[in-house]
């Protein structure tokens, strides 16, 4: 059962990721990225990471993709004359690099002994949110605070970047 669900979700994820690269219209690319993100969220559920599955859907499929679609439509890129030719002169380089990377990754995965039994952690499965919350506020307290500063700096940076230069009014 679990294996079947894994293969269905994996197929959806890979297929929509390929479509993301192949679609010429950026709006369609964004929508297929949403499909990939939902499939990965389903895989998180299979891996007993329930909290991350929820965050994945809320933050990525919700907030981040709305931001993408907002910018695409704000800049009117879905329009036909703004479409670029999908593939430039880097196609061959890209494909060769991709194949080499994939072979290297599969070799690295294949040579390790990862088919052994999975270490059981009952707390991580039954009390997922509690476990993560405790870790975030004890062992990872400092990185947690740094992450909040990063978000604040990004917020200020975005405002500064997008703000129009206005002539000095004296």
């Amino acid at each position: 059962m679990e294996t079947a669900v894994f293969y269905v979700l994996a197929t959806i994820a890979v297929a929509s990721a390929v479509l993301l690269v192949l679609f010429r219209n950026p709006v369609y690319s964004a929508l297929s990225l949403v499909a990939t993100l939902f499939a990965v969220a389903g895989l998180f559920v299979l891996l007993n990471a329930y909290f991350l599955a929820a965050v994945q859907i809320i933050v990525y499929a919700g907030a981040v993709m709305v931001l993408f679609l907002f910018v695409i439509m704000l800049l009117n890129l879905g329009h036909s004359e703004a479409l670029e030719s999908t593939v430039g002169r880097y196609r061959l380089t890209g494909v060769i690099f991709l194949c080499a990377l994939l072979v290297a990754q599969l070799t690295a995965v294949g040579t390790r002994q990862l088919r052994g039994p999975v270490a059981e952690n009952e707390a991580l499965r039954t009390e997922n949110v509690q476990t993560l919350g405790k870790l975030l506020y004890t062992d990872f307290l400092f990185p947690f605070e740094v992450a909040s500063i990063i978000l604040l700096v990004a917020l200020i940076g975005v405002v500064v970047l997008v703000k129009r230069e206005t002539p000095e009014t004296t």
């Binding site: 994820a13 990965v40 999908t86 593939v87 430039g88 990754q105």
Partner: peptide
């Protein structure tokens, strides 16, 4: 998935 992402960055 990572390789597809790399391919997209290189070709688009």
């Amino acid at each position: 998935l990572f390789s597809i992402g790399v391919a997209g960055v290189l070709t688009r």
